[in-house]
Measured scan of single mutants.
Amino acid sequence: LRLEVKLGQGCFGEVWMGTWNGTTRVAIKTLKPGTMSPEAFLQEAQVMKKLRHEKLVQLYAVVSEEPIYIVTEYMSKGSLLDFLKGETGKYLRLPQLVDMAAQIASGMAYVERMNYVHRDLRAANILVGENLVCKVADFGLARLIEDNEYTARQGAKFPIKWTAPEAALYGRFTIKSDVWSFGILLTELTTKGRVPYPGMVNREVLDQVERGYRMPCPPECPESLHDLMCQCWRKEPEERPTFEYLQAFL
């Protein structure tokens, strides 16, 4: 395994491009020591290896001592969030954005069929390849993070704006909380990567959403798509659509 080009840095580690087995181009995620327990990670990795779908980033291998390494397929255009905010983002029109959403829903419909939960679905965790191919990455890892700023769910590192209220408040993460996050991801797509709930801080978002506030229809977004977002944001988790439905609708 060779680490060649550093692609990015996040709160919990770095991402590199490299070569595996001398020939395969891969992405390598390294986790800061202390982010998660190697034992817990190894268990999760076994499950992650079983998830194989064309719209999920394929896991190739893991190094399960500290520092933990995760070796996955390489996606040339990086994260969907950076892609939307970058040069190419300007030229993306609604049909392409909807197609990308459908690809993500397709990957998540598979996660749904496998009775698995992602827990951290957002544009930053979707990767883009050639020809606007989108794949879901980092599934299941969020559960293992041991950082206090994260586990408190009120901490600075927790993605509260993407998280369903029952998950943020009571830790009830299910495929239905993933559906909520998918609704937020749809706003990221239609606004080219704007942060959700602009002008609001995490605490406010939690309070307002509890009181029934939902983001309005983004500019140039059809009402039918906003309606779909609002279905994803129904207060009762069981009233939210399935990913199978979302995939078919898109």
Rank of each mutant, 00 (worst) to 15 (best):
E4D: 08
G8R: 01
Q9N: 05
Q9S: 08
C11Y: 13
F12S: 01
V15T: 02
V15R: 02
W16M: 15
W20V: 14
N21A: 12
G22C: 10
G22H: 11
T24Q: 10
K29I: 04
T30F: 15
L31S: 10
P33R: 08
T35F: 06
E39R: 13
L42P: 03
E44H: 03
Q46L: 06
L51A: 01
L56E: 00
V57P: 05
V57I: 12
Q58E: 13
Y60N: 11
V62H: 05
V62M: 15
V63A: 10
V63E: 03
S64T: 06
I68K: 05
I70H: 12
E73L: 05
S76D: 13
G78A: 07
G78L: 10
S79M: 04
D82M: 06
L84G: 03
K85M: 12
K85L: 10
K85T: 12
G86V: 08
G86M: 06
E87F: 13
T88V: 10
T88N: 11
A101E: 04
I104L: 05
A105Y: 01
Y110H: 10
M114P: 01
N115Q: 11
Y116T: 12
Y116M: 09
R119H: 01
R122P: 01
I126L: 04
G129S: 13
E130H: 15
V136L: 11
A137V: 02
G140F: 01
R143Q: 04
L144V: 10
E146D: 06
N148H: 08
N148G: 15
E149Y: 13
E149L: 08
E149I: 13
E149A: 13
Y150I: 02
T151P: 01
T151E: 06
A152V: 05
R153I: 05
Q154R: 10
Q154Y: 11
A156N: 05
K157Y: 02
K157P: 15
F158E: 03
F158K: 01
I160K: 01
W162Q: 02
W162R: 02
T163D: 00
P165H: 08
A168G: 15
F173K: 02
F173G: 03
F173C: 10
T174G: 10
I175A: 15
K176D: 12
D178G: 01
D178A: 03
S181C: 06
S181L: 01
I184T: 07
I184Q: 03
I184V: 12
L185A: 07
T190Q: 05
P198R: 05
M200E: 08
M200L: 08
V201Q: 10
V201K: 07
Q208N: 12
V209K: 01
R211F: 11
R211N: 04
Y213S: 05
P216A: 09
P216D: 09
P218G: 07
P219S: 13
E220N: 09
E220V: 07
P222V: 07
P222M: 09
M229R: 01
Q231P: 05
C232P: 02
W233A: 07
R234P: 06
E236I: 11
E239F: 15
L246C: 08
